[in-house]
Amino acid sequence: MVDLLLAQSAFPEAMSQHVLAHYLFVSAAMFTIGLVGFLTRRNLIIMFLCTEMMFQAAGIALIAFSRFHLNYEGQTFVIFVLTVAAAEAALALALVVFLFRKRDSLSAEAWAEMKG
């Protein structure tokens, strides 16, 4: 009943809905943890790290659905998610370095007067 084989040499079999539900739950829980972190942490770098965590959670859901429907679209889109994550990391970290030079602090509240 429990498939202990790690390496799949054959083309994957169909996956049941219950297994899909397990993976989707992990994805949703990881997204929520990332959201809690984004809302509570006050360190700019950790806040961006939490957005990366949410990207990763979306990736798990995409790959689980790709495996469930046995097509490759989900995996292809994870490649694009990785691209966006890399671009975001580059820009966000450059911004953080820029802001850190201005205030000498990584706190998001150092910029609290930036209101609309």
Binding site: L6, S16, H18, Y23
Partner: peptide, 16 residues
């Protein structure tokens, strides 16, 4: 979730 899949006779996810 595991109990639900056992009740439906569907396989559990891989142990890992």
């Amino acid at each position: 979730l595991g109990a639900a899949s056992l009740a439906d006779g569907s396989p559990l996810p891989n142990l890992f």
